[in-house]
């Protein structure tokens, strides 16, 4: 089978409940702070949405780590795509009907679909993974918050529709600013990779929670930089601060990740350059 994992529960230094709190509270606070502060202070505060997305990405990556450790049989990427697939459905629904409570509605309904898919996985498909239901719920919810967070940092709001005063668009909504323009595809792949890649890259018998999560921070920072690049060409969000903070987080988390890779490796050694043609003959 293509999936790794030892077929048992993963060892964890940070308990999952703390990471759930980190993801949910951090994600929602980031999204709402971005929404209100963009109104009060200005478009430059839109980077807070991406910080919220990073919190939920780390949470999602940790949930993927726990469930994929049992061996899904399908490879880790499938569950990341499941997260974003459910996330995009719940986000469209939540933001369209929720108004100011949009991110909360999206979170609740993503958890609901995740719960159903997890129960179907165990009851109908007989996957037999004890934490399947909880993990799918968490992963779907994290996917939804990631989408809302990155959208907010791209356009400065999570309102679904354009705000029009006297026939002039004063604020672009998610529908026209993110979905119609196709930036949702960037979120889909960058956010999905950030959730699925950390465990996929680090799996194996020596997998450590802190190393995987450091990788998740680093992938989240890349998603943040991408959101910043998009924000530079949208009028109601500021890209430069998002990109700068993203690069700073990326540098710190990548150094942290590299340090842990060196810590966990048996030996790190330089192999030198490839021998030249003459040396080979």
């Amino acid at each position: 089978m293509s999936a790794g994992g030892g077929g048992g529960g993963a060892h964890e230094a940070i308990p999952q409940n703390k990471l759930i709190a980190f993801g949910v509270i951090g994600g929602l606070v980031g999204i709402y702070a971005a929404y209100f502060l963009v109104d009060i202070i200005g478009p430059s505060m839109s980077f807070l949405g991406a910080l919220g997305a990073i919190c939920s990405i780390v949470w999602g990556a940790s949930a993927v780590r726990r469930v994929a450790n049992y061996g899904l049989g399908t490879g880790v990427p499938s569950i990341g795509m499941l997260a974003l697939g459910i996330g995009v459905i719940a986000t469209t629904f939540g933001l369209a009907v929720g108004g100011i409570a949009g991110p909360l509605v999206a979170l609740v309904f993503a958890s609901l679909i995740g719960l159903v898919v997890g129960m179907l996985g165990n009851k109908v498909l007989n996957m037999g993974i004890p934490i399947m239901v909880q993990s799918t719920t968490e992963i779907a919810a994290a996917g939804a918050l990631t989408i809302v967070g990155l959208s907010t940092s791209m356009i400065g709001t999570f309102m679904f529709f354009d705000e029009i005063v006297n026939g002039v668009v004063v604020a672009q909504g998610v529908a026209s600013g993110v979905m119609t323009t196709g930036y949702i595809a960037v979120i889909f792949i960058a956010g999905g990779l950030a959730i699925l890649h950390p465990y996929n890259a680090n799996l194996g018998p020596d997998e450590k929670q802190d190393r995987t999560l450091a990788c998740a921070f680093e992938k989240g920072a890349i998603a943040m930089i991408l959101a910043g690049i998009v924000a530079t060409i949208t009028p109601f969000a500021s890209g430069s601060i998002t990109i700068l903070i993203g690069i700073a987080i990326w540098y710190v988390s990548f150094s942290g990740y590299y340090k842990r890779v060196k810590r966990d490796a048996f030996m790190v050694t330089g192999s030198g350059l490839l021998p030249s043609k003459e040396e080979l003959e």
């Binding site: 499941l82 974003l84 459910i86 995009v88 469209t92 498909l125």
Partner: peptide, 15 residues
């Protein structure tokens, strides 16, 4: 929305 549904329905059978 169709893409989201497509991914969900591709992952369920692959499990």
């Amino acid at each position: 929305f169709a893409i989201g549904l497509f991914f969900v329905n591709a992952v369920i059978p692959s499990y």
